[in-house]
């Protein structure tokens, strides 16, 4: 997979390295900005209320 991407990037080694770096940063950004904020509430650290603080609380 990574070999395939590397072979299909244009330019010489330096250009490829630079593009790879940008791609990695883009992936990390998308993860931190969109994927993890969605996934994190599924972890147990958010449950701090009794009965989720929902309708049951008058």
């Amino acid at each position: 997979m990574y070999g395939w991407i590397w072979r299909h990037l244009p330019g010489n080694t330096w250009v490829k390295a630079l593009i790879s770096l940008v791609l990695v940063l883009a992936v990390v950004f998308v993860l931190f900005q969109y994927v993890f904020p969605w996934a994190e509430p599924l972890l147990p650290f958010n449950d701090v209320t009794v009965d989720q603080g929902m309708a049951a609380v008058r």
Partner: peptide, 14 residues
């Protein structure tokens, strides 16, 4: 890598 990044996100970034 994904797991490490998620840990960093949860422990540090939040």
């Amino acid at each position: 890598t994904l797991i490490v990044l998620l840990v960093v996100y949860t422990l540090f970034w939040t």
